[in-house]
């Protein structure tokens, strides 16, 4: 118990040290300064927006009015409904893609599965909408087809990044486990799976952004259920740019929240990974 208490204190002190002594190449920022800088930059951005040198960009007031209109609209035209549809698609698609990609990436350590992994990686060069007819044949139009398209499209990218993570495990780590007597599934889990999980979360977070690009394209092709993509398409076609930018702002906010959520997951599940990031 004494050992554990002492170790706890030490861990805390060391964590504080590592936070306080974070060294970045061009200097480091405290939390207070960082949040103030973010406010300053957002302020500058808003200032530029208010003066609006780009004529194609609607003024902030117009976007605000678009928000009001969409908020008060009912059913499939409503803001909340469309955000809900897209967010649900994003989460479900990302979830499926993460599970499938983790499986394909981790199986790449077994020679039998390496060609499958390589083929999936090559497919990322091909636009997912090119497979529209294939998906149409295999899945019902609407929700199942959208989920399948998003899952497949994101998996191509996720597998590539996740396989890269596995390939970058240093040989020394494998050899350390070997000399310590790790074998079979324990070896695989301790050297390949467990230490790479926080990096896999990073890969999922990075590819979540690609997912948003795909979602808008996929919802444009499958407009039956609505969603942000279909709304952006519809408003763009009728030249209602204020509504388009209102939705883009919402995507931006969701992206920030998603990033924050992924960091939170890492903080809770893999605290050591944040120590590594802080240097």
């Amino acid at each position: 118990m004494a050992i554990e208490n002492a170790a706890n204190k030490s861990t805390l002190n060391n964590a504080k040290d590592s936070l306080g002594e974070t060294v970045r190449v061009y200097g480091s920022l405290g939390a207070f300064a960082r949040s103030n800088l973010v406010i300053v930059w957002i302020g500058l951005l808003l200032l530029v927006w208010f003066f609006n040198p780009i004529k194609a960009l609607p003024f902030p007031g117009e976007v605000l009015q678009a928000f009001r209109r969409m908020w008060s609209a009912d059913g499939s035209q409503g803001l909340l409904y469309n955000v809900y549809v897209t967010l649900k698609l994003n989460i479900v698609g990302l979830g499926y893609a993460a599970i499938i990609s983790l499986a394909i990436a981790y199986l790449s350590v077994i020679p039998l599965f390496q060609p499958v992994n390589k083929m999936v990686q090559w497919l990322r060069y091909i636009p997912i909408v090119g497979f529209n007819l294939v998906f149409l044949t295999l899945f019902t139009i609407g929700w199942p087809m959208k989920v399948a398209m998003l899952t497949t499209g994101m998996s191509f990218f996720l597998v590539t990044s996740m396989t890269g993570v596995i390939a970058s495990i240093p040989r020394m780590k494998y050899e350390l486990a070997k000399v310590l007597g790790y074998k079979d599934w324990r070896f695989f889990y301790s050297v390949v799976v467990r230490p790479t999980l926080p990096l896999m979360i990073d890969m999922i977070a990075q590819n979540a952004a690609i997912g948003w690009v795909m979602i808008t394209a996929i919802e444009t092709y499958n407009r039956t259920e609505g969603g942000i993509g279909s709304q952006i398409y519809a408003y763009s076609s009728t030249n209602n740019l204020a509504e388009v930018y209102a939705y883009l702002l919402i995507i931006g906010v969701i992206a920030v929240l998603e990033d924050w959520g992924f960091t939170l997951i890492k903080r809770l599940m893999f605290p050591y990974s944040l120590i590594a990031e802080r240097g």
Partner: peptide, 20 residues
């Protein structure tokens, strides 16, 4: 393990992460 940590002056680091 606890014996080693004690003997080699690592008690305070027992529950630390290797990066620390």
């Amino acid at each position: 393990a606890l014996c080693f940590l004690d003997e080699f002056d690592l008690v305070r680091q027992g529950l630390a992460w290797p990066l620390q």
